[in-house]
Design a protein around this nucleic acid. Structure first.
Lengths: 151, 151
DNA sequence: GTGTGTGCAAAACGTTTGCACTGGA
DNA sequence: TCCAGTGCAAACGTTTTGCACACAC
């Protein structure tokens, strides 16, 4: 935990940004909730517990900054709020999401299934892939087991 | 064109909705700009040229309605606005997007590369896929040919 | 002191809603 | 006379911005 904060501190400093107490509190919240996809509001409420004097704008500014530095990834699941994920150190953070349209749950698949596709894109389309997003909308196992369909 | 409007009219009527002049104007704009991914505001401005008295709320309501009827698909590319695409009659409209982070252009790939993955999801994860979204961010061919990299 | 970073409040943004009105069955 | 559909304006929730202040170097 401390080591990871230290690392992020260095990432900031390498671009002449400081790890202020507010930024550190924000990062800690992200670290403590790595499993979730927190919205800015979520982060704000959690940060308030650690550092009650922080302002919402600061949280937004911090998340934006961390996003630019590729410390977090800004996600958009089409529900009207941006969500923020810490980028895992390892690999290129290419995972996929299963979004249940019934219960709203979200599951992650950590495998990257798209590498062959990306190679095809480079060759057939001349498109150099930096990142991708693959989300599936559907019905999760739990919901399937307790309903008859309507879509 | 007229045939396609007629078809949409029937889709509406089958659910007891009417193809009002405003709705028709909206549909015409969508048909005439099938290649683009128009935002509600885009649609509004284009509809105004045909039917200047229309209100933005009506456009939103129409797009929402068409979306519910699966006449259009509501897309989200994470740029803060919803975009709307006519669903092509054929197939399940499973295509993918190449979004250039340099020039903002967007190209569509009409092939569906994910069918094998969806089968895996059903079997390994018990997740029933209704729809998916696959977007690649990167540098398009045109931009690549006229720059040195920085990302 | 000069700077970056901050809190607050106000603004901006896309979108939705309330409401009175209209126009066709 | 209904009642779905509409235009307008106001409300909404998220995000951004302006500005004066704080605090580190």
């Amino acid at each position: 935990m401390e080591a990871r904060i230290e690392k992020i501190k260095q990432q900031l400093q390498s671009q002449d940004y400081k790890l202020t107490p507010q930024r550190e509190a924000t990062v800690r919240v992200l670290l403590e909730n790595e499993e979730d996809h927190l919205s800015a509001e979520d982060v704000f409420m959690l940060v308030k517990e650690i550092a009650p004097e922080i302002g919402l704008a600061t949280v937004y500014r911090t998340l934006e900054l961390l996003s630019e530095l590729h410390v977090v990834e800004k996600l958009n699941f089409g529900d009207g709020v941006a969500r923020y994920d810490l980028r895992t150190d390892s690999s290129k953070h290419h995972h996929h999401h299963l979004i249940c349209v019934q219960c709203g749950s979200m599951e992650e698949i950590m495998e990257d299934w798209l590498i062959p596709l990306e190679e095809r894109l480079e060759q057939e389309y001349g498109f150099h892939v930096i990142d991708h997003r693959l989300d599936f909308q559907g019905i999760c196992r739990r919901c399937r087991e307790s309903r008859e369909s309507d879509e």
